[in-house]
Design a protein around this nucleic acid. Sequence first.
DNA 1: GCAGCTGTATCGGATGACAATACATTGCTG
DNA 2: CAGCAATGTATTGTCATCCGATACAGCTGC
Lengths: 263, 263
Amino acid sequence: MPRKNHAPDVPQAEDALFVQSLARGMSVLEAFRDADGALSLGQIATRTGLTRSAAQRLVHTFRKLGYLTLAEDGRGFRLDLPILDLTHDYLRLNPLVRRASPILLDLRRNVRERVDLSLFDGQRMVYAARMQSKRETFFATLVGNSVPTTCTSGGWAVMAMLPPTEVDQILAQASLQPLTPRTLTDPQAIRDQIELARQAGHALALEQILMGEVALGVAIPDASGRPIAAIHIAGSLSEWDPEEFRRRNAPLAAEAVRSIMSA
Amino acid sequence: MPRKNHAPDVPQAEDALFVQSLARGMSVLEAFRDADGALSLGQIATRTGLTRSAAQRLVHTFRKLGYLTLAEDGRGFRLDLPILDLTHDYLRLNPLVRRASPILLDLRRNVRERVDLSLFDGQRMVYAARMQSKRETFFATLVGNSVPTTCTSGGWAVMAMLPPTEVDQILAQASLQPLTPRTLTDPQAIRDQIELARQAGHALALEQILMGEVALGVAIPDASGRPIAAIHIAGSLSEWDPEEFRRRNAPLAAEAVRSIMSA
DNA sequence: GCAGCTGTATCGGATGACAATACATTGCTG
DNA sequence: CAGCAATGTATTGTCATCCGATACAGCTGC
C-alpha cells in the first residue's frame, strides 16, 4: 500500500537524517499561511497533502504542546500563543535585530517618522520591527508581514548591493503585481531605481506600497558585504516634498546603518 | 537499552495520537527560550534531554525546512526567518488582534502615548502589539515579549475579572520577583490593586516594570465574560501626575475596549 | 599533541508513526 | 424531516521510519 507523500517541495528522498514526522508537522503550521480563519482537519489535510489521519495526529500533538487550539466554536483549529514565544526568541537572538533596535529607536526619535527594519529574504522583505509615528492607516503593522523586494525602497537598496545575476533572478521570478496604481511593474523601471540606489547609497520609493507614502530605504550589509536587511524611514506626501524628504532623512538613515554595522 | 525520555513535562504516555518526533522537534525550538546566542548540538541535546543523535536529526530537518540555520561562524545554530511567518499568521488570524488593531491605532492617535495589547496567558501577559510614542528606553519592545501578570496594570485588570480561585492560583505560583524597586511583591498588596481594579474597571500601575512609567490597563473579556487580554496606555511620570493620567485616559481606554468587544 | 569540543555520516533493529476504518455530533439541504 | 456531508474523536494491526550508538573530520585551547 503506497504511503501518501506529502508536500512535494519538501525534500525527503534518500535523506537518512530527515525526520519526516517533523516536516509534516511543520507543514501543518504552514498550512495557515494562506488561510483566512480557522482550519478544519480536512482543510489541513488538503492543504498539506497529508492524510486526514496524519493531520489528526499532528494537530493533536500540537494541541498538547499548546501551539494549536480548537477554535471557539469547536470547528477548526488556530495557531495559539506559544507561537509568539518562538518569535520573541528569534528576534531577541537575531544579532542584527539586537544591534539595530536601540539605534532605530534613536533614529525614530530624531526623524519623528515611521522607522522600520526589514529582513531580506529573496523575493520578500520581511518586517522585523516597526516603530510607527502619527498615523498608520491599517494594521499591516504586524511583525512578520512582508512585501515584495521589487517594490520597496529597502528592496531596491538591497538589490543595489547584490551581484547582477541575483538581481536578474529576483526580477525574473517576481510577480510584479502592483499594490498601488503607481507600483512599478516594468523590470527596466525597477532596474533604473536600483541603479539610482547604487549611486546614491539609498533608495526613494513613492507610493509603491501605499498611496500617499514616501519611503527611504538603506541596505544593511553583513560583514562580507552582502545585503541582509534594510531600514526604512516612511513619511506622508501630504507633509513632505519627496526631494526634501530625501535631503533631510538620507543622511540620518545612512548614519544609522553605519552605527548598526559597527555596533 | 532504555530509550532516553525527553522533557518530562511533555505528555506522551499512553497517547496513541501523540507524535513523539514532532514534540521532540518543537522542544528543539523551545530550547532557545533561555538561550543567549546560538546553540550547538550538544547544548540542544542537554537542554532538551534528547540524544545528540536526535538533536542532530531534528536540527537537520529544521535546517532543510529553513527554521534553523547554522550560525555565521559555523558553531551552533539559530532560529531563522520562517519563524516570523508563523508569527504573522498567528497575529493575522487571531480574531482579537484583528479586531483590536485598528481601534488601538485610533486610540494611540488620540492619547499620543504608548498603547499596547497583551494577551493573558496565566502567569504571563504576552505583548502581541505595541504602538509606541515618543521615547522608548529599550527594546523590550519586541513582539512576543512577556511580563508577569502580577506586576502589570493589564494583569491586575485581568485578574479582577477572574474567579477568586484562579487569582489565588496565579498569586501562589507567581515568582513575585521585583522588576523595579517599586514592584509590588506582597500578595496582599497585589490583591488590593486587583480589588481597586474591580471597582474602577481599570488598573493603574506605577513603576511596576520600569521606573518612571505609569500604565493604565483595561481587561478585554471574551464572549463568555472571561478575560483574555488587556490593553495598556503607558506614559511617563515626568510628564504626568498619576491621577491626571488616569482621569484623562481611563475613559478612552474603556471606550476602546468596548469598541473591540463589539467589533 | 592530546582532550574536548564542534558539525557530519552510517547502520541494523524495534519503536512508534502510519492509513484505514468506525463513531458521535453538528449543520446544511433537498 | 430525513439524510448527507461535514465536523472532531477513537481504535487497531502492520511495517516503515525514526531511533541511538558509534565513528569521523576539523577546529580550539589547554
